[in-house]
Design a protein around this nucleic acid. Sequence first.
DNA 1: CTAGGTGCAAATAGTTTGCACGAAC
DNA 2: GTTCGTGCAAACTATTTGCACCTAG
Lengths: 151, 151
Amino acid sequence: MKGIDQRVEAFEGQLRKAGLRMTQQRRLILRVLAEADDHPDAKGIFTRAFAHDPTLSLSTVYRTMKVLETQGAIERHAFEDGVSRYEHADQAHHDHLIDIESGTVVEFSSPEIEALQAKIAAELGYEIVRHRLELYGRRLPTAGKRRKAQG
Amino acid sequence: MKGIDQRVEAFEGQLRKAGLRMTQQRRLILRVLAEADDHPDAKGIFTRAFAHDPTLSLSTVYRTMKVLETQGAIERHAFEDGVSRYEHADQAHHDHLIDIESGTVVEFSSPEIEALQAKIAAELGYEIVRHRLELYGRRLPTAGKRRKAQG
DNA sequence: CTAGGTGCAAATAGTTTGCACGAAC
DNA sequence: GTTCGTGCAAACTATTTGCACCTAG
């Protein structure tokens, strides 16, 4: 897991490399994204950034998100609630499990599932460009000690 | 695969059982849905139905879709384009592969993937209520003869 | 008859865009 | 000094809703 500052620098590097300007607004939004460990939507990002710069506008957030998505610096997800949610893309690919009661998003990854997806697609005559896998579930009433699946 | 009329009757039965009225508009929308072998959005359904009854309104389509979804008679999907797309639910569960060039939607199902999903969720302490799996791909340049995966 | 359904228009919610001004390079 | 980016307000798209009228049961 990268540190916040490294992540902001990485974002900045991506923008510069693409010949884009590093404005105060973008720097601020980048920092908010780097600090986020959840999947905020545009308004959420705006709210957090607005606290540091009350002149920021929501349009700028949307425009910045679009730029960053194009650069591949962030990923946009559209969960069931209909709004676009974002997360920085400096991490390994993963899918999401959404707690239907609390809205909590848990990340996981499964190479086995990925492999099966590729196989199925190939059988249908397709090559997968990207995919979306979301599990919507309810917390199991367990005694305790569970840990994060990874692998 | 059920016939169109049987499907319309099934829809009608579901509505009646729920104590809801069978109006001309609903009958028409039901027929459009029963005849659809794709995944139309509200406007698409409206357009097809409107051809048979120019007094129909888009609001009625939306309201009807909501009722049908509540009854479990149809399924609503939100693919990447952002709009809600619908399909009748009188078929076995399946997921979708979307051709990113043509927009064509191919259906498939994989018990292996479903099993893995359940396993992963359980490891995270969750029970799956529903899920969403969409593959976005490009057609492979093949010589020919491929068939629908089903397994 | 009368509760539920419909059409229309207006309201929402999320997101995008035109324009004039300001800032990064 | 140019060009790109920003704020604001207005536009847009998908969907929902209030209201008066209509119709299925």
